[in-house]
């Protein structure tokens, strides 16, 4: 369990590589973790081949949720939107390299939830498409 706060996670939490806001962006999405009031926003820029060129997150959260967000955004730069949509829970757990109980799993997966909601929104043509 103590592995939860291994150096890599604390480092990512304290000095993230992808923290900030992208304006303008190609899509932006935000959501809350209702159990703790944490909030994450993710902004993405893509190129004409629908590949991620830049990805930043902002908001507040615990070390697990913010380190997950940073690692996740690191991993998607250069990926296509289809590859982003195919990301799963296990991909996050592999990046973190730790086991999580059900409560902390919500922390770890908040950024993936936000990212995928944004990515799916981008492909839609309805009126409720998130900011583009």
């Amino acid at each position: 369990m103590q592995d939860l706060y291994r150096e890599m996670i604390i480092e990512r939490y304290k000095t993230p590589h992808h923290k900030g806001v992208l304006e303008p962006n190609d899509f932006s999405y935000e959501d809350d973790n209702p159990s703790c009031g944490d909030h994450i926003r993710i902004d993405i820029r893509i190129d004409e081949d629908d590949r991620v060129v830049e990805a930043l997150f902002s908001g507040q959260g615990c070390a697990i949720s913010l380190a997950s967000a940073d690692l996740l955004l690191d991993s998607i730069v250069g990926k296509s939107l289809d590859e982003v949509k195919a990301l799963e829970k296990q991909d996050i757990l592999d990046m973190l390299g730790i086991e999580l109980g059900p409560v902390r799993l919500k922390c770890a997966l908040l950024s993936l939830k936000v990212l995928k909601a944004g990515a799916y929104g981008l492909g839609e043509t309805e009126d409720n498409v998130p900011v583009r």
């Binding site: 369990m1 103590q2 939860l4 706060y5 703790c36 944490d38 507040q60 959260g61 615990c62 070390a63 697990i64 949720s65 902390r104 922390c107």
Partner: peptide, 13 residues
């Protein structure tokens, strides 16, 4: 230094 979730987690350890 730390978010409440992390405080509670380390206290649990």
């Amino acid at each position: 230094e730390a978010h409440p979730h992390d405080v509670a987690q380390i206290l649990d350890f």
